[in-house]
Amino acid sequence: MNTSMYQSKAFKAYLCGFFLSLLLTLFAWFIVWRHVSSGHVVYSHLFIRISIVACAVIQMLIQFVFFLHLGREKKPRWNLHVLLAAIGVIIILVLGSIWIMDNLNYNMMNITPSQADSAF
């Protein structure tokens, strides 16, 4: 207890993570706020979607590293392995479900005509 905990590397990591997360939150929010206030014209739909998702994913990674200290544990690093497996399952489940259900909606005509035009 020689140094105060507020001078430790660990504290700096938490602080750094906090500010980066705050930044990404505000950035994503600001883009949407600007788009909505301008009457949905100032950005393209695709750009906004990608920005929002990218900000979310980056902020998640930031919190993994700075808050959850991922990748810094000693071998055999089961936490990291288990997390990667879970992320794999989540991607398959979510993207797979979206693909399947969209496909089903199209073929089962469970959608409006305008939705049919944008289905893949």
Partner: peptide, 18 residues
């Protein structure tokens, strides 16, 4: 819980209002 909230914030609210 905060990480999950990041996605709720982004997918439900942000993507929901545009």
């Amino acid at each position: 819980l905060d990480i999950v909230w990041i996605f709720i914030f982004s997918v439900v609210y942000l993507l929901g209002v545009i």
